[in-house]
């Protein structure tokens, strides 16, 4: 290889690694490192700040915790409502995405078939709802009329269907060769069997991605708690409890100083700690779902 002339190398699609290539690669590497650091450092800063003694922080940047302390976390977790709120958050984070994906899957499968009667109408009818929203007050009236206020079901039922998720799944189903479904039907499978035994296993990548997005959304949101379940402590979610905690954090930080001699926390460190607490569960879920993003599940699926 090393003895081939440049012309012959080019004819074979080979390219000699030149000095220009080296500097280009070096530039790209440095650039990407800078982008990675700029992307990741804010989170590190939040983490370091939350673990620092605020009285010792006197620089705008932090590269490690100064005066390591976990008092902000102790203070946040000292609220007696946190464990129950955590349970509610976990429940809604698991239940709502599963139910949503199930409903969207059914709709997507039906709409992916060209011969489905009224397909065009239903598609347009559903898609229009993506662009228009009645607003907060009509939504509130609807939830009241449906008796969903002060109920856990307000976390599930309004989120049962998502047009975006349905379109994503439908598009993915349409990319699957129809021969797969036809071959299953020739073998005697009905629509449900086709959906759950043939199509569903192939949808793992898109379902995993949507499941993750929904989990993140469900975990972080507190607006529905604020609007519909504010008066019921049993239905408060973790993000709502922590958000409330932070809203009152001035007096909370002050009480902390006096109650337990904590003088290492302030409003900002409480907010940072809250951010870390809320992010950690999602960061644990991400690696678990990474493997489902792999492609190549289609190989060998079609007979003949």
């Amino acid at each position: 290889m090393a003895n081939l002339s440049d012309k012959r190398r080019r004819s074979r699609g080979l390219h000699r690694y030149s000095t220009g290539d080296f500097f280009f690669d070096l530039f790209v590497a440095i650039f990407m490192i800078v982008v990675a650091v700029c992307s990741f450092y804010p989170f590190l800063y939040i983490l370091f700040y939350s673990l620092s003694n605020v009285a010792m922080i006197n620089t705008p940047l932090l590269f490690w915790p100064k005066g390591f302390t976990v008092e902000a976390y102790k203070l946040l977790l000292s609220d007696s409502t946190v464990p129950h709120a955590f349970l509610i958050s976990v429940l809604r984070t698991l239940i709502t995405p599963v139910c949503n994906l199930f409903v969207c899957l059914l709709a997507a499968f039906a709409l992916s078939h060209q011969h489905f009667p009224g397909r065009g109408f239903f598609q347009k009818f559903i898609t229009i709802t993506m662009y228009f929203s009645a607003g907060m007050i009509p939504s509130y009236i609807l939830m009241v009329r449906l008796h969903l206020t002060n109920s856990f079901l307000v976390y599930v039922i309004p989120g049962l269907f998502s047009v975006f998720n349905m379109i994503m799944i439908k598009t993915y189903i349409e990319s699957i060769p129809p021969a797969l479904e036809e071959s299953a039907m020739i073998d005697g499978a009905g629509y449900f069997k086709v959906l759950f035994r043939v199509i569903l296993p192939l949808l793992k990548p898109v379902l995993a991605a949507l499941f993750l997005f929904m989990c993140v959304g469900q975990w972080n949101t507190y607006a529905d708690t604020l609007l519909y379940n504010a008066g019921n402590k049993d239905l408060h979610t973790l993000s709502y409890v922590l958000m409330n905690f932070i809203q009152q954090s001035t007096s909370t930080a002050e009480q902390a100083r006096e109650r337990v001699g904590l003088n290492t926390v302030n409003t900002t460190s409480l907010k940072m700690s809250m951010t870390v607490l809320v992010v950690i569960p999602i960061m644990c879920v991400y690696p678990t779902l990474q493997k489902y993003f792999a492609s190549g599940l289609m190989i060998g699926s079609i007979k003949g």
Binding site: I95, C99, S151, F152, L153, G231, D234
Partner: peptide, 16 residues
């Protein structure tokens, strides 16, 4: 999961 959805809903308190 549907059963789990039913349980917290059943815990709705009257005075809320």
């Amino acid at each position: 999961v549907m059963a789990c959805a039913a349980l917290p809903a059943c815990s709705k308190t009257d005075n809320a």
